[in-house]
């Protein structure tokens, strides 16, 4: 899955943008692989105490995989949308993995310098968040997307607006309500069994 295949990411992106939906399926594994690779790289390189920003990560993937000379502004936004979703998968997958281990599955422990470093507490939170987001997406997919883009992808308000083709004000108000709803859902008194 790591090999780049005969079609470059740029071509796939452009064709996807032009309407060829099948390209997304080919695009995703390529991007995901790169995302993981870069994330690991970041972790090993980071100075102590320096927080990893997913923004930086996602953008680096973008710069790495996409030929700047061929792709315009709007395409970048679309790409970031994909990357954000992938970021979510990557992180949540890892978090679920950690949770499973914690529950004494006896599986191998991931050494600290491999994979992404997420604290155990955070892992549980991420899983809960992911579940809640799925719930939200059932009756308001756009708000779930806003959260995915901004939290997992680290996109700014204008970038999110671009990716979703809405006005920035819409993003701001969506973000506000989505956060409120998620916070409420994730608060201890209304916790779902995790």
């Amino acid at each position: 899955m790591e090999s780049m295949g005969s079609e470059s990411v740029t071509e796939l992106l452009l064709r996807w943008r032009a309407g060829d939906k099948a390209c997304l399926d080919k695009l995703v594994p390529l991007v995901e692989g790169e995302l993981r690779r870069i994330a690991h790289h970041y972790m090993r390189m980071e100075r102590p105490g320096h927080t990893l920003q997913t923004t930086a990560l996602v953008n680096e993937v973008y710069l790495k995989l996409v030929n700047q000379a061929q792709v315009d502004w709007q395409s970048r936004a679309q790409f970031l949308g994909v990357a954000a979703r992938l970021m979510r998968h990557v992180l949540v997958d890892h978090a679920r993995e950690q949770c499973r281990e914690k529950r004494g599955g006896g599986a191998h422990l991931l050494p600290l310098d491999e994979g992404l470093a997420i604290s155990p507490a955070k892992s549980a939170e991420l899983v809960a968040l992911d579940d809640a987001l799925h719930d939200l997406a059932r009756f308001d997919p756009r708000k779930a997307q806003v959260v995915e883009l901004r939290y997992f992808g680290g996109l700014s308000v204008p970038e999110t607006a671009e990716a979703l083709s809405v006005h920035p004000n819409t993003v701001i108000s969506d973000w506000s309500l989505a956060k409120a709803w998620l916070k409420r859902e994730l608060s201890p008194r209304s916790a779902n069994g995790a």
Partner: peptide, 30 residues
């Protein structure tokens, strides 16, 4: 109303990065 209450407490919620380093021995909240 419950949403408004939650909103008041959500100013920093999800505003940081989901990923931390561990090299200082513990998560650094953002």
């Amino acid at each position: 109303e419950s949403l408004l209450v939650a909103a008041r407490g959500a100013s920093s919620f999800l505003e940081g990065s989901p990923v931390y380093t561990t090299t200082e021995g513990g998560p650094r909240p953002t």
